[in-house]
């Protein structure tokens, strides 16, 4: 599904990704761990098509070069990024945003867009599954939401858009124990043989709930070690010292 070869990324003269390789197949869950500032969010941003980066190397997504696709096209083709810091967008109603988003994706796929009523029924269901109070949906997008509420809203968007590749950037940070379980359940219930996950996290906690097929350590812009789920547990004990 995703093949990254020798990816380099520079922004504002800062060379951040320095030859990164990663392959993800449908149905797989990959976890990326690594010290602060090692380039994890940068990788997520580059995959999402954020502008401002000078990049080198190749990213193939379902046989297509990602370089040629705009951010919205990537999203329409099934790449989803749950942000480490979801943005607050004043004046934009959450429901309207969610519907515009879903309909943009449906339209791009050549599918029928949802009318307001069908949409509201759908979003109500999805919100209930995540224990999100409906009232949030009539508020301005993320404005005044607590840290955890913002993260839940990201997962709600994931479940709504049904992406093929979901990149979760520290979605677990800031979640209480119950919310962590709800979010993990959300991911597990959505997981199937067709879609894949790239989960960026600092804590083994989340990986106890969502069992990864691979754990990668990103350090100084490169993947320096790849292992099975055990690697996460090992890192929890030893830290990154011995790897870097």
């Amino acid at each position: 599904m995703l093949h990254i070869k020798n990816l380099e990324a520079t922004i504002d003269k800062k060379h951040i990704l320095k030859g990164l390789n990663l392959s993800i197949k449908p149905g797989e869950v990959h976890a990326i761990m690594g010290p602060n500032g090692s380039g994890k969010s940068t990788l997520a941003n580059v995959l999402s098509g954020k502008t401002g980066y000078e990049t080198k190397g190749q990213i193939q997504y379902n046989g297509e070069s990602l370089n040629d696709l705009s951010t919205e096209e990537r999203a329409q083709k099934g790449i989803f990024l749950a942000f480490q810091y979801p943005l607050e967008i004043p004046g934009v109603n959450t429901n309207i945003f969610l519907r515009t988003s879903l309909n943009s994706v449906l339209k791009a796929k050549g599918e029928k867009e949802l009318d307001t009523l069908t949409f509201l029924k759908l979003i109500k269901e999805k919100a209930a599954e995540l224990g999100i109070d409906e009232k949030f949906l009539s508020r301005q997008l993320n404005v005044g939401f607590s840290g955890g509420e913002k993260k839940k809203n990201e997962i709600l968007q994931m479940k709504l858009l049904q992406p093929k590749l979901s990149i979760l950037d520290e979605t677990d940070s800031g979640l209480d124990i119950d919310a962590l379980r709800i979010v993990a359940d959300g991911v597990n219930s959505y997981k199937n043989t067709e879609n894949a996950f790239l989960i960026i996290t600092h804590y083994q906690r989340l990986l106890d709930y969502i069992k990864p097929d691979y754990v990668h350590v990103l350090s100084n812009g490169k993947i320096v070690k790849t292992g099975s789920a055990d690697l996460g547990m090992q890192l929890e004990k030893t830290g990154y010292k011995n790897l870097i």
Partner: peptide
């Protein structure tokens, strides 16, 4: 960028922000 990552075309994203403002 945030709106675009949700599949919303750039022009539409601008309109949403302007409208919100």
């Amino acid at each position: 960028h945030y709106l675009k990552t949700r599949g919303i075309p750039e022009k539409e994203a601008y309109k949403m922000l302007i409208n919100g403002f």
